[in-house]
């Protein structure tokens, strides 16, 4: 997976090609394919020498360039019949040019998004954290149910706050935490209050393993439709709400679900 990280620096073969075309100041509709191919290959060698893992896409593009170059070297058969003539008129570069132009359009769109982002960053509105001061968003404009992504993001935030436990050489007594046990803990808490903050609930636990198991307990109860997870605002805290009254009903049985 290493190369994906590197790839973000290079943006991929189309980006490299555009860069070369711009640098050479040539017409994108009439790319001097031999020259550009040579330069492209040089970049590839250098990237290899620098020990950057080249993604397969760069090599695929190299093959494409070489095959276009080869086609362009073939003599044009002008004396052919009408049908062949039509085929001849297709420039081997056309497909590549179309892809480059489309990519270029989106690259420019990305640049204008960046400008809009910069401009918008000057308009500062009330930071979302202001909400955590004991206030809860109540308008009905909820985001509704929470996606797994939002749960994971919230989980990352909670775990991120905690420093990794220092490793100690001495042996610690192994503590068994089970999902079932954490379900009981959560269920008991929901019996006392109708809703619970996701972050506050998880933050109470002493270590990562407790948090992870508790997280799984939340997922399990959500799967069993015993609880509902609601996020009122993007990136806001997630509320755990019981869908059935825990005090009125026994612990949900996982096996019968």
């Amino acid at each position: 997976m290493e190369y994906r990280v590197k790839l973000e620096v290079f943006e991929g073969p189309l980006d490299l090609l555009l860069h070369l075309i711009n640098k050479a100041e040539v017409d994108i509709y009439d790319i001097p394919i031999a020259v550009i191919t040579e330069q492209y290959m040089e970049y590839l060698w250098t990237m290899q020498e620098l020990d950057l893992n080249l993604a397969g896409e760069f090599l695929v593009m190299a093959t494409t360039l070489l095959s276009i170059k080869a086609k362009m070297l073939l003599p044009h058969r002008r004396q052919g019949g009408e049908r062949e003539k039509v085929e001849e008129e297709i420039d081997p570069r056309e497909v590549l040019v179309a892809r480059l132009l489309e990519y270029k359009a989106f690259k420019e769109a990305a640049a204008s998004l960046r400008k809009m982002e910069d401009r918008q960053s000057l308009f500062i509105s009330r930071p979302v954290e202001a909400q955590s001061q004991g206030w809860q968003w109540v308008t009905e404009k909820t985001l509704g149910s929470v996606s797994l992504w939002e749960l994971i993001a919230a989980m990352r935030q909670v775990m991120g706050r905690r420093k990794p436990e220092p490793s100690r050489a001495r042996e610690l007594p192994r503590q068994e935490i089970t999902v079932n046990h954490q379900i009981e803990v959560l269920w008991e808490r929901l019996g006392r209050q109708p809703s619970l903050s996701f972050k506050a609930f998880l933050r109470d636990f002493p270590d990562r393993s407790h948090m992870v198991v508790s997280f799984l307990a939340i997922l399990e109860l959500a799967r069993l439709q015993k609880i509902m997870l609601v996020q009122k605002v993007p990136f806001g805290d997630i509320l755990i709400m019981s869908l059935v009254s825990p005090s009125m009903q026994a612990m949900p049985d996982r096996d019968t679900a």
Binding site: R4, E11, E57, R99, F106, A109, A110, L113, E117
Partner: peptide
């Protein structure tokens, strides 16, 4: 937002709804 993410976002914004394969076709990378 990284450049790669911004380009991807631009493609999604203009072509939505769009699949991962369609985005990769335009950007030429995974």
């Amino acid at each position: 937002i990284s450049q790669a993410a911004l380009e991807t976002l631009a493609i999604i914004a203009y072509k939505q709804p769009v699949t991962r394969a369609e985005i990769e076709e335009i950007r030429g990378v995974k």
